[in-house]
Each structure stands twice: as structure tokens, then as C-alpha cells.
Design a protein around this nucleic acid. Sequence first.
DNA 1: CTGAAAGCGCTTACAG
DNA 2: CTGAAAGCGCTTACAG
Lengths: 348, 348
Amino acid sequence: MRQNVTIRDVAQRAGVSAATASRVLSGNPSTSASARAKVRQAARELQFHVNARAKSLRRQQTDTIGLLLPDIRNPFFAEIAQAAEQAALAAGMTTLLCNANESTAQQDLYLKLLVAQRVDGIIAAPQGDGSGKLDETIALGLPLVFVDRVIEGVDVPSVTSDNWSGVRQAVRHLVGLGHRRIGFVTGSQETSTGRERLQAYREALVRAGIRPDKTLIRYGNFQTESGLVAARSLLDLSQPPTAVIAADSLMTLGVVQACNELGLVIGETLSVIGYDDTETTRALSPGLTVISHDPAAMGTQAFAMLRDVLGGRRVPSVVLPVSLVIRNSTGPVPLVSASATSESGARR
Amino acid sequence: MRQNVTIRDVAQRAGVSAATASRVLSGNPSTSASARAKVRQAARELQFHVNARAKSLRRQQTDTIGLLLPDIRNPFFAEIAQAAEQAALAAGMTTLLCNANESTAQQDLYLKLLVAQRVDGIIAAPQGDGSGKLDETIALGLPLVFVDRVIEGVDVPSVTSDNWSGVRQAVRHLVGLGHRRIGFVTGSQETSTGRERLQAYREALVRAGIRPDKTLIRYGNFQTESGLVAARSLLDLSQPPTAVIAADSLMTLGVVQACNELGLVIGETLSVIGYDDTETTRALSPGLTVISHDPAAMGTQAFAMLRDVLGGRRVPSVVLPVSLVIRNSTGPVPLVSASATSESGARR
DNA sequence: CTGAAAGCGCTTACAG
DNA sequence: CTGAAAGCGCTTACAG
């Protein structure tokens, strides 16, 4: 707070009252042309920058929103952040971007901070069961919109994508290629997307007449390293899967890293389906078959919804469609697989 | 600003004055044990959350910093953001993350916003020549630290990495493998890194006795698409380069995408050296030879420096070392290259 | 259209 | 250790 030119200084220089200066500077039409001219010039000469904090204190409104994301290094969330922030900027609002680091504790910390900053509303991709600070925040009446993830049983408008459909399409595609031993690297079960995608995988297998096999599931945490570890462990099985689905973009990278390490040819020795169609996945070779959704649209949409909530409107939740982009990382089951002989499936 | 419990409410409930409540809540030691107990309980019962904006107005200090980055979707800057934000959080400071979108206009907009928010200081990876808002901001006396990029002639402490050395090592490595037609995809010349890396490339060539060839240079903007376009155009030359260096991580992805498109075998038909060793580049196959620096260290360091500046200490600028990580994307010049016969080099 | 005054919620010398 | 009072910088009914 180095900057000490106040509206009073401007008023004085312009020869008007602070009230008039304020009116001119905030575009209140009840001002004379001469007042406008004088005040504007004085403000320019003095390099006046309004103190947004004093202003918000008085106005009881901060024109600031909180954007609470689990991991800014995840390209998927980076896209959401970019889109939401740009939308907010266009609407004249400042974004406080908070990086929960996939940690509920840090999420709580940031929630506290956002309340202290008196943001007008929050867009969050939440974590946990809403038992802690999140519930408290909602109870405070702070307008909230969920993006990508939700908390079950908490009544907050949300923009999510159709995880069920995405995973179902992925499983079907693999089954169609003859795969029956399909591994799954799931994300944190503390999140709705982690749970949904895993359940969708199980359900899709059952529908295809394949009994879900626990030994083919690995629990990651949406970060690259966990995907790497998970894939190593799956591929180390005496009967390894012939295909693997990873439940987010970073874990997908980990799976690909593991394949590279082991010298597996993706799309031949092992079929891989990733999540999120990012710049990154698009640079991989062979091209990755991915479950694709649109993070930029989610971010933009989430901000639009928050504005509606702030405007006192009721807003329904939205589920965005998802598609399976088929490239070269998926192929028929290799004949020489250890698992080709012993898999029986569908018995019940 | 829905939350209306004020420190006065807490004081009243605790049976003390607002002054005492304030002292307790902000850890001022001049309080009695009994006052502490009563105030804390009242605050808990009322779910009091201090109004950080009122507080900062009074204290003339916001405990908030601005972090102005050119592109949050760039994994390199995402890492810087993550590290700087975590460091700030640990120090009890809030980060206002601003995404300039590689646009000087948007940078100016955010600079204005940060001044209005009265942040205590700013960490920026700046753009342009500092003729606009940036100079104005510095003139205001707002503490500033540059990260990754600098503005020449502007006296602000900075954390950068040794671009000269990085590019020099890359060129040497390629020359050592026999390459003489080395393409370069450079970033925006509006940035110090864009300019430095290009100059370093030219200089390294000269040192190796190779005359820089304009037709082998392409001007990108640090985004994926521009790398893709640049690489396509280089590879479309009647005498294409046998090796390409890309000047940032996103453009590197673009170059790799172009190679995939054209079915080139990276490391054989074409050698590629990228910039930044991110999760992404580590998932590529063949493994990418990259100029590697440490964005997390830069972010942490930048925050530490800003704290020093805020503490009134003089801080020297730092240039972090850079290394060339050699993987499989670089190899000897292919014998069947169109350029193998006509290149003469070193004539002057 | 304009100004004097009050007040947003907090902290901090000051006096005790 | 505690409280009354002032003031951070702004905006906005209110009266004119």
C-alpha cells in the first residue's frame, strides 16, 4: 500500500468535493460536464488508482470471485482456470485462484481465506465429503458453483461432464477389440470424479459380460507419479491386462511413461485409453485414444452460472457431453498375451 | 459480503471491547488469559471470520502479492505458479494469480488491477519493453521481482535461468553429432527469453563455425500451435534442417506434433531438442533431449526475493543454471538427407 | 447536480 | 492489560 493518492486529493485538485469526484470516477450520471472534465484531469495528473479494498468495504461487494482448483499443474484444470479467469475479467471481476494441491486440508485453508477476502462467490472443484469448511462456507450463504467435481448431497449448481458415458464408451471400444482384461487406474476416491469413473468402469464391464477383477484396479491420486506406479504394478502382474484406462490426464502421462520404460509398444502390446484431450496427449505418438471433454467450456460455463447465482437467478446444473476420440493407442488383443488363454469372463 | 459477524459482535458476546477482541484475535500478547478465552470462544460460537479487506485498509498492508504470468496453461509457468503460491501460503500471504495470455494489453490491465488491490508486491514474468503500465507501476514504488523474463534497462531484481548456456549446450551437442543445418523455433521477440535464446542460437552457431541461416529460423509465440506451424514450414523446405531446437515447452510439443503428422522418426530422420523438462516431455517417446531448468525453484526463489524486498533488504538478481538432458530425440545426421551434400558451413 | 456527514470493519496509538 | 476514539479510503442516502 505504497500508493497514497486518495480521492480526496483528486477532489481537492479538481476543486470539487470527494463525493463528486467519486461520482465522476465511478461513472455516476449525476455529474456535470465540467465536473467530469476537471475530475478526470486531476485523476490523470495525480495518477490516481482507486483503492479497491476501501471501495469494497463500503460497497459490501468485492467484484472478486474465488476459483478453487485441485491442481493447477494439471493441464485439465489449467484450461478451466484460464477460461473462467478470462470470463471473469471480461465481466470486470477479479479472480482469486487457489490451488488446493489435491489436499482437503489445503482446500479448507483456502476456503477460509476466500471468506476472509469476502469474495462475492466461489467456483470450486471440490474434494472430500463436505463435512468440513465447505459446508460451513455454504452455510454462510456464499454463492457457490461446482465445476468438474461435486459433493454428493450438497445442493449446489454444477458443471460436470458425463463421466459415465465417457468410461462406458471406452470400455465398449476395448471390448469390441476383444479385450477382456482391462486395467483401470482410478483417481482419488475422495472426489466425485474418482468415484464415478471407477463405478462406471465396473458397470460397463458387467454390461459387457465381464466380471470386474479387483486385481486390475489401481488407486492413484490424479497425479503423474501415481499413474506411473499404478501402471508398473499392473504390468508386473503374472497375468497383466491387455488394456489400461487411466482416469485423468496426468495419470495417463504416468501410464505412458511406464510403457516407455518397459519398452512396450502402445496400441500393440498394450492398449491405452487416457482421459482429457490436451495439447500434451496430442503430441504423443502413437496418438492416444482418449475420453475427451471440454475444460474451457466448463470454465466459461461455470462462471456464467456463478453470475446467474449472484444475480439471484436459479440455475440448473449442467452435464456436458463427452466423446471418445479414437487414435492409435488402442488395438486388438495381442495373440501372445499371457492372459489370452485363461480369461473366461461372463461366468457368474 | 454476506458474512456480517463483526469483531464488535464478538467483543459484545465476550464482554470486552472491540480493541481487546482485536488484540486477542490477532495474537497481540497484551491480553489477559481470561480475555483470550472469552474472545476465542465467542469468535467460535459466532463463526467469526475477520474481514481481510477492512483489516488491510487499516493496516496499510494487504498480505497479498500479485503473480503475473504470461500463460498459465504453459506447464513451465504452471510450475512456477504452484511453487510461488505455496511459498506465499506458507508465509501467510495470499496470491493473486494473473494470466496475461501472452498479451501486453492484458498485462497492463492486470497491473492496474493489482495496484487497485494494493498488493504488497508483485512477481512478474513480463512482456514488452516496460514503456507502459509496467514502468508506471514501478514508479509507484510497488515492490517488484521478475521471474524467468526481464525487461532490459529496468532495475528490478530477477530470477532467470541461464538461457545462453542452455542454447549453447544444445547447439554444441547437435554440432557434435554432425548437424550443420539446425533449425530454430524462437518465441516472442517481445520477451527477454525470446530474444536471448535466439541470440544464443546465432552466437553458438558462429562459434561452431556455422553461418546462421535466416531461412532456418521461425518466429513463434510460445504456444503449441505456433510450434506446429513453424516445424511444418521448416520441414517443408527444399533443404530442410536435420535438427530443430524449440525455445519453450509448448512450441516443443508443436514440433513433435508436426513430426508425428509427417511420420518423421524423431532422433533419426530429424533430431529435436526441446525446452523445459516437464511431466509432458518426459512422457514422450522417444525420450526428448531437452534444455532443462527448474521452474519450481524459480517460483520459490522469486517469492523469497520478494519477501526480502518487502523487508527492505537489497537483493541481487540470480541466474539459475541450466542443463542439457540428453535422451533419444537427438542422433547423428541421417545420410540420406537432401542437405548432406550442399552444406559447406564456416565459409566467411 | 453537489456537498457534508456517516459508516463499511478493522487496528492502534493514547491514556489509564 | 484494557477501552474510547480516531481514522484507513471510499460511497451513498440525505438535504439542498
